[in-house]
Design a protein around this nucleic acid. Structure first.
Lengths: 221, 221
DNA sequence: TAGATTGTTAATCGATTAACAATC
DNA sequence: TAGATTGTTAATCGATTAACAATC
């Protein structure tokens, strides 16, 4: 079966692993014309070398040399293409509390070329202030200005939702209405798209899930 | 095949779904002696009714009544038992920056009986202060006091790691050395346990992964 | 050459979905 | 009764692991 290059849909798991490979490569900072093997990637990322090669095969990245591994520069470029790093993304953060601001500064967003261009909140002591995100002056607007902002900045298609749970569903619906096409919900409540909504990506990310797993495993081993 | 009650190991996916059921039940706040069907749980959690019943079967929760569903009080008790809510957990947060403090206040920890008892940091303006977490006065200690604290509070077996990436690995190793048995790493770097370490649960939780998925899907649809 | 590492296929494993008899 | 909903098994689907010929 031939690999038809770009047009595969990656699952979240593949995306996460590919992100790991990309980050590992950046972190190692090897000479551009050296080689890295799948075994070495296993050491660093914890992903088995079989899985690494399977992923590369699946993605149509078949650029390895036997006995050497993958040319660092070529691999780097291939991963950037797969992850659309060059296109990047500008996103907004709705909810400028601790979590919202922590996410705005999230280190790995920068190397993925993802930038937070504005935050929104209702608290008077936050609204109107300017926060520094990786050297960029980034404003916190009142949430009333959301509509205006989204309509003026049509390239912004993604929002991170970090508002209190009591208003989360309402604001999600508003964002969708305004034309936002992708939302990550970090509020501690499962949200759902209004009935009939198509073409909008919603991911509910429960940041407690990992801790629950650890608690469970400690009690069951 | 008989279900031998408690002694099944749940995967992270099952744990997450069971958490959803538990939260849904709490949120709905139905009369204790009413009934809820798998179809209704599907509506609220987004998990298919087949999956709901499959999970309950897997967990040995076979308490449903045909035509009615699950008795709310019984189901509630069963879920609490599966999730070990009564035992709860006391955890520490290492790194008292925005993410660390946001996690400390994470709403869903409370209903899971998970409490942050102390935070640790090195910043002079944080160390020595006391933060209010759900009505509890919670101290921020200097990270030098980590050893002392862990040895005095032997029931604390879990740490959330929210320190800068540059020191993350070092502090992880320290925590394991001190006897911590479960760590969730929220720092933007994949950490690994030192060679030969057994019986310690480490979960690397990359909070950016969900956004990467949304970005990817928007570019590929 | 011998050894290492790839690309690729096949086997295995696990998780989800579908189906349906039982029955309230 | 007829309809709804369960518990449970079976079928399907997808993801991971293992195997290995090719070859540098």
């Amino acid at each position: 079966m031939k690999n038809d290059k770009q047009e595969k849909k990656m699952s979240l798991r593949v995306i996460t692993r590919v992100s790991f490979y990309y980050e590992a490569l950046l972190k190692l900072d090897l000479p551009q014309d050296s080689f890295i093997s799948s075994k070495k990637l296993e050491e660093i990322t914890g992903v088995s070398c079989n899985q690494v090669r399977q992923d590369f095969f699946y993605l149509g990245i078949s650029i390895g040399k036997q006995k050497k591994g993958y040319h660092v520069e070529k691999l780097f470029r291939a991963l950037r293409r797969v992850l659309s790093v060059d296109r990047g993304a500008e996103v907004i953060v709705v909810g400028a509390g601790r979590l919202g601001r922590a996410l705005s500064e999230y280190k790995l967003f920068k190397i993925r070329n993802i930038h937070v261009t504005a935050l929104f909140d209702v608290k008077p002591d936050l609204v109107g202030t300017i926060v520094d995100i990786k050297g960029r002056k980034t404003p916190i607007y009142h949430i009333e200005r959301l509509e205006e902002y989204v309509k003026e900045n049509t390239h912004v298609k993604i929002a991170l939702l970090t508002v209190p749970e009591s208003v989360a569903q309402e604001i999600l619906d508003k964002l969708v209405e305004l034309g936002i096409k992708g939302i990550v919900n970090y509020s501690p409540r499962i949200l759902k798209l209004a009935k009939g909504i198509k073409g909008v990506q919603l991911v509910n990310d429960c940041i407690g899930a990992s801790l629950y797993k650890v608690v469970y495993q400690i009690y069951h081993k």
